[in-house]
Computed example of a mutant assay.
Amino acid sequence: MPVVGIPGTLCAPEIFDRLAAALPGGSDTVDAVDWLTAPGPWRIEDVAASVSRRIEALGEPVTLLGHSTGGCVAATVAATRPDLVSHLLLANTGAHMRGHGDVDRILTTITEDWGPSLHAAVLDRSFATPLPSGLRTRLLAYAARVPPAAVLEVLTSQRDLDLTPKLASITCPATVLHGSHDRARSVADARYLAEQLPDCELTVVATGHTPFWEDVPSTVAALERLRAR
């Protein structure tokens, strides 16, 4: 069964590599979507439509992994195209952005001060412990290639979107995976999201905003339980 991963805002597809290497089949297991450097538009609904077309081309339903903003995209795909998603894993995301305290500040900074300082701030807050220098350099280089218009458009659309009314229609097995040391999203956000999904398990791990990189064994175990349901 194919696995498709949707990374969060300013997050390179490489972020799924450690997880892919740990899954049966090795490094090619996760088809990671580089949606931020693809042509726009970049609203959540537009990115979800693009991901849906990508899954259609695979010819069978997939296990869909969504991280942060990518989780919002993944949930939108599962709600609008249930025929394409057999299992859904949402990592450190939420049904809406109420209480996500710094989104308006980030939007202002994108407009007024886009550049390396913003990229580094967003990247570094996504992990509970510092990244290896080589990986951090590569992820920052990726962020530098992302059009600021893409980040501004997707985060504005995410800020204004509440997925709660759509979540009850997602009937495939789902897991909400959440790092308890996340500086952007709270465990309460994860719990609320899990409660709105009809068939969902909540798994909390001791990581930051990116549990599938920070705690690969727990993510693999969560995926195995999910795909067994």
Score class of each variant (00 low, 15 high):
residue 1 M to W: 14
residue 3 V to E: 00
residue 4 V to Q: 00
residue 10 L to Q: 10
residue 11 C to D: 05
residue 17 D to I: 01
residue 17 D to G: 02
residue 18 R to F: 07
residue 19 L to I: 01
residue 19 L to V: 04
residue 21 A to S: 02
residue 23 L to W: 01
residue 25 G to N: 05
residue 27 S to L: 09
residue 29 T to G: 01
residue 30 V to F: 00
residue 37 T to H: 11
residue 39 P to H: 12
residue 44 I to Y: 07
residue 44 I to L: 15
residue 47 V to I: 14
residue 48 A to E: 03
residue 48 A to N: 09
residue 49 A to H: 02
residue 49 A to K: 06
residue 50 S to R: 15
residue 51 V to C: 07
residue 52 S to Y: 09
residue 53 R to V: 02
residue 55 I to T: 07
residue 61 P to N: 11
residue 62 V to R: 00
residue 63 T to M: 01
residue 65 L to V: 08
residue 65 L to Q: 04
residue 65 L to W: 07
residue 66 G to K: 05
residue 66 G to F: 11
residue 67 H to A: 04
residue 68 S to Y: 03
residue 69 T to Q: 12
residue 71 G to E: 07
residue 73 V to L: 06
residue 74 A to C: 11
residue 78 A to D: 04
residue 78 A to P: 03
residue 80 T to L: 14
residue 82 P to R: 13
residue 83 D to S: 12
residue 85 V to W: 05
residue 86 S to K: 10
residue 90 L to P: 00
residue 91 A to Q: 12
residue 93 T to N: 03
residue 93 T to I: 04
residue 95 A to H: 09
residue 95 A to M: 03
residue 98 R to F: 14
residue 99 G to V: 02
residue 104 D to M: 08
residue 104 D to N: 10
residue 108 T to I: 11
residue 116 P to F: 00
residue 119 H to V: 12
residue 124 D to H: 14
residue 125 R to Q: 15
residue 125 R to G: 15
residue 125 R to S: 15
residue 127 F to G: 11
residue 135 L to H: 13
residue 135 L to D: 12
residue 136 R to M: 05
residue 136 R to P: 02
residue 137 T to M: 14
residue 137 T to E: 15
residue 138 R to Y: 15
residue 140 L to R: 02
residue 148 P to L: 15
residue 149 A to V: 12
residue 150 A to M: 01
residue 151 V to W: 01
residue 155 L to F: 05
residue 156 T to A: 13
residue 158 Q to C: 14
residue 159 R to P: 04
residue 160 D to G: 08
residue 161 L to K: 13
residue 165 P to C: 09
residue 168 A to I: 04
residue 176 V to K: 03
residue 176 V to Y: 03
residue 177 L to S: 07
residue 179 G to H: 00
residue 182 D to V: 00
residue 186 S to Y: 06
residue 187 V to G: 02
residue 189 D to G: 07
residue 195 E to C: 08
residue 195 E to L: 01
residue 197 L to V: 13
residue 198 P to W: 10
residue 200 C to P: 06
residue 203 T to Y: 00
residue 204 V to C: 11
residue 204 V to H: 07
residue 205 V to N: 10
residue 205 V to W: 07
residue 207 T to K: 02
residue 207 T to I: 00
residue 209 H to I: 01
residue 210 T to M: 11
residue 213 W to V: 05
residue 216 V to F: 12
residue 219 T to L: 04
residue 219 T to S: 08
residue 225 R to E: 00
residue 227 R to M: 04
residue 229 R to K: 13
